[in-house]
Amino acid sequence: MTEKEFIPTSYTAMENEGVVTYSSPSNIALIKYWGKLEHQIPANPSISFTLNECSTTTSVQYKKLETPGKEFSFELLFEGRSKEDFKPKINTFLQRVEKYLPFLKDYHFVINTSNTFPHSSGIASSASGMSALALCFMEIERSFLKEMPPEYFNKKVSFLSRLGSGSACRSNQGPIMQWGESTAIEDSSNLYGVVYPYLIHENFKNYQDTILLVDKGEKQVSSTVGHELMHDHPYAKSRFEQAHSNLKRLKDIFASGDLDAFITIVESEALTLHAMMMTSNPYFILMKPNTLEIINRIWKFRSQSKTHVCFTLDAGANVHVLYPENEKETVFTFIKEGLAPFCQSGQYICDQVGQGAKKL
């Protein structure tokens, strides 16, 4: 599909008021995207596990204005309280998507959002938050049209989410989402994420993700800035080629159930992501000493226990500990006893692969 196909020609009927609520999860990338072009287009393809417990619930109340406004009319509440510092990001999002949702200036919106995880925990709240908001707006648009095929709805939700936060386009469905053009994935697109369409071995069903909260503080460098630094990065071309290659390899791994090969790809991707940060100009380090301690302890435990526990990292210090469901008891005991002491205030979040967003 092209961008033009997401522009509606007309609405059959526009309601005066209503309310819609969605819950959308965060996701954790296995193949990382780092670097983007104009209009939130990824410089390389990525693939992710959709999470289940770490989610954002967003409710949008809408009421038609007597006269369409020149600006967007909305209030923003976070967990029931006004959150003025969130409004500029939402306003930017509305500016980007207005072309595709031409009703936005016809209504006043009250947006009320909350997370199932602590806001300062370092979980990708922009992914779940922008996905949930896009779902609400798309549900409103669907009510203005006689028919909207589910496939079109899901693609446009992902397309709109991407314009708010790149990784958000991988949150509305599950269990595995892929984003970015790749010869390995049929119908892949830079414009939106797609549900991974090929065989997934039983080994990867209900995969576990325990998120270790190493540092809940604000990152010294935002992901937006980090992505921009890839434009003149000396290793950018090699990195983008590596991502394409790893995605092809992961396709075979998902089919065969080869957990050892899965570990190699996932951990290499995480370390490469941080290597790009450490070799950009300016360079920066987001890992903390406890991040490295946890990684070393995972490697040692995996060797001793013969389990298939591994780690991945987003652009931050926190560690996602991944492991198959049939090893949950053994690995989780290790996490509680061997890794939790290296978390801030001993905090961690238990999650697993999920199926995507839900209308509430």
Rank of each mutant, 00 (worst) to 15 (best):
A132S: 15
S121A: 15
T58M: 03
N154C: 09
N52Q: 14
A29R: 00
L37K: 15
F6A: 06
Q178C: 13
P25I: 14
E15M: 08
P45E: 05
A13H: 14
K156S: 07
S256I: 09
F301V: 07
R162W: 06
K146A: 14
A275C: 11
L212K: 02
I90D: 00
F74G: 01
H233S: 02
F6T: 09
N281P: 05
Y11R: 12
H39S: 14
S126T: 12
G129A: 07
C310H: 08
P324G: 03
I90K: 00
D252K: 13
D351E: 01
Q208L: 05
T272F: 05
L30S: 03
L313A: 10
S158H: 12
F240L: 12
A357Y: 01
N190A: 09
F72M: 02
V309P: 06
V110I: 15
W34A: 04
P175I: 10
F72C: 02
D260H: 13
P341M: 05
E38S: 13
T116H: 10
S189Q: 13
E79H: 08
I298M: 11
F332R: 12
R142G: 04
S48R: 04
V110K: 15
T116R: 02
F137T: 07
A13I: 13
Y235V: 00
T183Y: 07
Y192A: 00
K306G: 06
L191N: 05
I28M: 15
L77D: 07
L271H: 09
I111C: 09
L101C: 15
S82P: 00
V266T: 15
G354L: 00
E139K: 14
L199S: 10
L145H: 14
S24E: 12
S161D: 12
E75I: 03
P149K: 13
D85I: 06
Y283D: 14
K219A: 03
S256L: 04
P234A: 02
S10W: 07
R297P: 05
P25R: 12
N44S: 11
K156A: 02
T312E: 09
